[in-house]
């Protein structure tokens, strides 16, 4: 039987294949959050749970995870970022249950997830709500509005996941508009925070699986371009598509991953 590690490796390769075949960038931030999403989808999420991808530019990782679950096919992935596709560069709305919301403009996912969590609370529905943001995305004011709301309303079912890879569109988060320390800021808003290694599968499973009273934030420290030597923590891989030799090298690198 295939292990989770094997499944993740296979899915990362499928992600790279999809981006290579479609000539699409945003690979670095997809690789930084893929471990988190694979653990979440394969080990944690249950029927009544909901997930919102706030960092919509990591749509590729969500599509790949849904492929690993059999919810999307190779035929679907072939159309990624092409004409007449549902798999647009940022998620599109109203076509597959797992994509709760079309995102892409940053700072929307957490307020939406807060609405989902509030609905569960009002309706006394079971299930949890997970929302993945980037770290740079916390420069958006709407996130802080949602944070105040989620804490004030004690939205128990809400888990805020931060893919903290430290790089954003035009520099490091530290250089562009420092959020240091995000943990202290969350705590000062009354939001409990955990920090984990976002590539430690056991820690991810334990953390995403944990049920808490009240909302919580988890800062997952990650590497942009994780697993690919020439992408690792390089800002340009926020944007660049791979050429063929880079793609081949990336596949070799992934096989070398511990």
């Amino acid at each position: 039987m295939e292990s989770l590690e094997q499944n993740i490796l296979k899915t990362k390769k499928r992600l790279l294949q999809m981006h290579f075949e479609s000539g699409v960038g945003h690979i670095g931030g997809n690789l930084s959050c893929l471990d988190s999403l694979m653990v979440l989808y394969h080990r944690v999420l249950k029927k009544d749970d909901l997930f919102v991808l706030s960092k919509g530019h990591s749509a590729g990782s969500l599509y790949s995870v849904l492929w690993s679950l059999g919810r999307l096919t190779d035929e679907d992935l072939k159309l990624f970022h092409k004409e007449h596709t549902k798999l647009s560069g940022h998620p599109s709305p109203n076509w597959i249950q797992e994509i709760t919301f079309a995102t892409g403009s940053l700072g929307h996912g957490l307020p939406l997830a807060a609405g989902l969590a509030l609905a569960k609370k009002l309706k006394k529905d079971s299930g949890r709500v997970f929302c993945l943001t980037s770290d740079g995305e916390w420069q958006e004011g709407s996130n802080w509005e949602a944070l105040i709301f989620a804490v004030h309303r004690q939205l128990d079912s809400l888990t805020l996941m931060i893919d903290s890879n430290g790089l954003q569109g035009f520099g490091t988060t530290q250089e562009v508009a420092s959020l240091n320390s995000l943990k202290e800021k969350f705590l000062s808003f009354g939001m409990p925070v955990e920090e984990i290694d976002g590539h430690d599968l056991k820690a991810l499973e334990k953390t995403w699986g944990k049920k808490t009273r009240g909302p919580r934030a988890v800062i997952a420290h990650t590497e942009k371009g994780r697993g690919v030597s020439f992408m690792k923590n390089k800002m340009e891989w926020h944007y660049l598509p791979m050429n063929e030799s880079q793609y081949r090298q990336a596949l070799v690198d992934l096989d070398k991953e511990p």
């Binding site: 939406l112 609405g115 609905a119 309706k123 949602a146």
Partner: peptide, 26 residues
């Protein structure tokens, strides 16, 4: 009662929260 929500002075969040509520059938 608890279905009257004062979302505070935060209209961006309020509208997205409303979208989340509507997504869940409210």
């Amino acid at each position: 009662g608890d279905r009257f929500i004062n979302a505070g002075i935060a209209e961006q969040n309020m509208v997205s929260v409303a979208a989340g509520l509507a997504h869940q059938g409210l």
